[in-house]
């Protein structure tokens, strides 16, 4: 029996490796557009990566800096821009989900404090499997500085 122990241990290690929680999602370049004066609705952008082997569903978002956070998408139909709310966004296994200007965005509703370029806001993302992701996003004027 004793000589099987190393094999058993090895098997447990390997199996344990497989059973470990999936690789967690992470955010790339999150940022919030600096609001013009009087604006009650801001947009947040980022790329969400899911390096795990299973699809992930983004189910909810919130922020201590805003009354509410929703998922919205700007869609062009016959040259008319329409903004529509979305729910339960899927990030495919090994893939990503992009929030970018003129397309999908986090709609940040009713800021709780005045926000200007250089400020940081906290955003909390909730996934359907119970996992969570906490982000800190800088406020800036536009996306032109994203790679500097």
């Amino acid at each position: 029996m004793m000589r099987y122990v190393p094999v058993l241990l090895l098997a447990m290690t390997v199996l344990g490796g497989c059973a470990k929680p999936a690789q967690p999602p992470y955010a790339e370049d999150p940022w919030v557009r600096e609001p013009p004066p009087g604006m009650n609705m801001l947009a947040g952008y980022l790329v969400l990566h899911n390096p795990s082997a299973t699809d992930l569903t983004l189910s909810d978002a919130s922020s201590p800096d805003f009354s509410a956070v929703e998922f919205h998408i700007s869609v062009m139909e016959n040259d008319v821009m329409r903004m529509r709310q979305e729910a339960n966004l899927t990030i495919p296994a090994g893939g990503s989900l992009t929030f970018s200007p003129g397309a999908r965005h986090l709609m940040l509703i009713a800021p709780r404090r005045a926000l200007a370029s250089g400020d940081q806001v906290s955003i909390h993302l909730q996934f359907a499997d119970g996992s969570q992701l906490q982000l800190t996003a800088p406020v800036r004027a536009s996306d032109e500085h994203s790679h500097h």
Binding site: P36, M41, L42, S74, M83, G102, H105, E144
Partner: peptide
């Protein structure tokens, strides 16, 4: 419109450039 969070500020920033 000014309460437009995404498309309007994106387009106006572009017009500024």
């Amino acid at each position: 419109f000014t309460q437009c969070p995404d498309v309007c500020p994106t387009t106006l920033a572009m017009m500024g450039q």
